[in-house]
Nucleic acid binder design. Sequence first.
DNA 1: ATGAAAGCGCTAACAT
DNA 2: ATGTTAGCGCTTTCAT
Lengths: 350, 350
Amino acid sequence: MKTFSSRSDVPRIVDVARAARVSITTASRVLNGVTTYPVAAATRERVLAAARSLNYSPSALARALVTKRSRIVGVLVGDIVDPYFAEIVRGVEAVARQAEYLVIVCNTERDPALERRAVAALRDYSADAILFAGGDFGDEEAGRLLQAELEPVLARGGIALALAGDRPGLPAIDIDHTAAAAELTRYLIGLGHQRIAFIGGPPQVSTARARLAGFLAAMAEAGLPANWILDGGYSFSGGLAAGTSLAGTVEAIVAANDQMALGALAALRTAGLRVPADVSLASFGGTSAAAQAVPALTTLVIPREQIGAVAMQAVLGALAPQPVVIASQLLPYTIVVRESTAPRLPEDAR
Amino acid sequence: MKTFSSRSDVPRIVDVARAARVSITTASRVLNGVTTYPVAAATRERVLAAARSLNYSPSALARALVTKRSRIVGVLVGDIVDPYFAEIVRGVEAVARQAEYLVIVCNTERDPALERRAVAALRDYSADAILFAGGDFGDEEAGRLLQAELEPVLARGGIALALAGDRPGLPAIDIDHTAAAAELTRYLIGLGHQRIAFIGGPPQVSTARARLAGFLAAMAEAGLPANWILDGGYSFSGGLAAGTSLAGTVEAIVAANDQMALGALAALRTAGLRVPADVSLASFGGTSAAAQAVPALTTLVIPREQIGAVAMQAVLGALAPQPVVIASQLLPYTIVVRESTAPRLPEDAR
DNA sequence: ATGAAAGCGCTAACAT
DNA sequence: ATGTTAGCGCTTTCAT
């Protein structure tokens, strides 16, 4: 077994330097492709050859320690199982990969304490940016505690961003949830439905409140009563329960996310109702699960992958030598009509 | 704004030491709770107080550099959207959290090149352990290249483990996929079914091959012909396609994962067949999606969370001062019977 | 019981 | 064009 510099079993830059018979500095310069510094072509070649033959790869830890940049970005997600978040992460990763950033996904289980721990861990590892996917939850006290953990990251020049959901004080990359929910509701109204229910998310979550507001606005605007507002907790089971209690009383349902819509769908079917013949069902999100349901769900598609990508781009800009200040931005959404919604049929045609 | 040690905007151990009027060494000892070293109670209190009032938290990077342990463990998953992997990750995280380890989830999209990049990134950040969730894919060449990236991690005393799937040369925490598939098949046979189809995963994936082998063994043992073997690629759409082509020709289907079962279910329903009245459907995995389907799916539940937890425990043991060598272990699985399977009805009763 | 000093692996002034 | 040196923030011998 080869041995390297004193204490390590893996090649270090000093090994490369030695093998190439240059100083560590020169090796570092070549390896980092520093263009502002002149290095003789022959020297450069020797260093590169040495690095390759030793299979050298620099320690990101040591580098981070001196450069003050870890090239780590953390993404906090409320529920790792929910494809909603997975696609945001995907967008972040795609951009991060190109920029040689390491993405750390932290699952908070929508628990403020866990979220705090995650932020603390990212802070300890000197993450350059923290992206909060999926908006605020927890009370004010939790918000303050979180802020305290986050503060050192910002103090070091780190970035914090809100993705697809509000975070007080942070720039947001998002869609207009209220407008979007209103538009989805209007679509159902345009189909002729009048008795429309809304299955919402947890009221502590900002997106849940925004979507509800949009629904209410659209109903009011059409002069329709909003008599069926339920809390489905953003979960399948919550949607199931809501759907069960709604069965037979409404003509259409807007669910504030796909998971709840799936739950409602299961409930309706169990109750012997046909979708969309008896009840139209539309949801918010646009995850693959919505497309895979039977019938496939009409949903408002949030450009989650794009949100992730745009956010990561913004992070890179803000971390660049000439920092670009990050401004909140609203991205466009689209309604995809599938099989779960249909025009209202006259009573006798059903 | 307060200022701290020369170059940082965040308190460092030297700031704590200064505030407590002790040396850095003493501060470090107190902060790390080194029990082998005697520190006067009064001193300890001063250090602790200083750390608290400064809101000090040590740099994991600097610590890792000197201790040669990053307290980072990477988990490689084939598909971040698949709840199958998410639950493994959950198990890992639960244990890692207690031990103050940072878990980095890397999404490989089942692409060997991405997988290699992920291992390289983890190596560069000096991950102490790399857990491969979900088994091997890619050809031999890819395996060799991966091995090359992984080697330095092992050389540093790092751990690599295979979770719920084979990886040549690595200890595995798993169930016996072959035995499990056989048992699930036997259950269907016991229900009286004879024309049983198998929707399998990609043959490059070790678990897919193992599950198929189990199916074939059970069929052979019962003297039944295994005439309907399809590749569903472990995806919903693959299951959908397979289900479509199977509709009307078999009495029962075993799907090698839940996603494909969901696809098959959609296909059967579209074809006008009832599950389980016309076709019994059982799957492998036991993700929440299986429970949430209508009808709820009978599945073989792989203890994924437990696999993750056991693996992380093993990692901790292997990394402890008195290292415990990691041996492969097989965990117990269970078959959960739900609504998607039923006894065969005589022809005229259908 | 406490501290001084070396050094982890790397980059970045600052020489030459 | 290349090398010397001084850290980054921490732990850890080794002194005292």
